[in-house]
């Protein structure tokens, strides 16, 4: 019997597909998320919109918050660590969280190196803006990828950009001959073996979710139609007028992403969405953290 293998790390992400992972800051919110049909929750002290507003250094949440969320729900619980902060990751692993997000939403602890994720038994998810970045994180041991998007903005434009880049680059690789792949690996700064694997299979070797700006059911369905395996919603739910209803609607839209009639029904009477931010006006672009 073997634990913490690549297969079981990657396997849990496979089971989350077609689902919505919601940011929560309390056990009460976690229960709302679970009841709405979330397939997992991300336990945080503050949602990205509040982190953005507060400024200063954002760190791993207080273990008490994470443990309370773990006790409140039966679905998987994820939590965030700063980029490169492997001790925060050791702490979360010892708490028994189901997935660690090495996240640009928090202030990076290391500007040169991400965590060596292959050393851990607990699986990691990491953000990426393009295929090269995704493959570098997988090379370090990430068992799941998500678009970075631009967290806490309620603006889908960056998540769309990142998903289109990843999917477009995968299609481009598929048309390359073997001798072109090494040059491409160099240009993308990605591990050659992984570049070859993507070229051969036409897909990322791990599950790829959308994140960073999802605020409406239509946003979730848009990301699914662009090729996402599932959706993270950060501030979009608990910064909206009616979190229960919006959470459920985003879950429904992720299942029925290809059914416009259902999407129309799902989108009705949800109350105000979270206030959105124009990317050009931001002081801090979180997506530029990490490499």
């Amino acid at each position: 019997m073997e634990k913490g293998t690549w297969t079981v790390k990657k396997g849990l992400a496979e089971m989350l597909k077609g689902g919505v992972i919601m940011d929560v800051t309390s056990p009460e919110q976690a229960v709302i998320a679970e009841k709405a049909g979330a397939c997992a929750v991300m336990a945080l002290e503050r949602v990205p919109a509040d982190i953005r507003a507060a400024g200063g250094v954002a760190r791993m949440a207080d273990p008490v918050v994470i443990e309370e969320v773990m006790d409140a729900v039966t679905i998987p619980v994820m939590a965030k660590v700063r980029i490169g902060h492997f001790v925060e990751a050791q702490i979360l692993e010892s708490l028994g969280v189901d997935y660690i997000d090495e996240s640009e939403v928090l202030t990076p602890a290391d500007e040169n190196y991400h965590i060596d994720k292959s050393k851990f038994k607990v699986p990691f998810v990491c953000g990426a803006r393009n295929l090269g970045e995704a493959l570098r994180r997988i090379g370090e041991g990430a068992a799941m990828i998500r678009t970075k998007g631009e967290p806490g903005t309620g603006n889908i434009v960056e998540a769309v950009r990142h998903m289109r880049l990843v999917m477009g680059e995968i299609r481009r690789l598929q048309n390359m001959s073997r001798d072109e792949l090494m040059a491409c690996a160099k240009e993308m700064a990605a591990p050659y073996e992984l570049v070859c694997k993507v070229a051969e299979t036409g897909q990322l070797p791990v599950v790829n979710f959308a994140a960073g700006g999802v605020a409406t059911p239509a946003d979730a369905a848009l990301m699914m139609q662009l090729g996402a395996d599932g959706v993270f919603v950060g501030s979009g739910i608990f910064k909206s007028e009616n979190p229960e209803r919006r959470a459920k609607a985003i879950v429904d839209a992720t299942t029925h992403f290809n059914d416009p009639e259902m999407l129309a029904k799902i989108s009705k009477n949800l109350g105000e969405a979270m206030p959105g931010l124009e990317i050009g006006t931001l002081e801090q672009r979180m997506q530029d953290r990490g490499w």
């Binding site: 849990l12 089971m15 028994g96 969280v97």
Partner: peptide, 30 residues
Amino acid sequence: NAYGRQIESFETDIEIPALGKPPFHAVFIR
């Protein structure tokens, strides 16, 4: 989730008499 949280997820070979040999490589996730 009877085997525990994700870090307890595992893979192992099990015998399934109805399928005969070889054993089945089974992956248990939460």
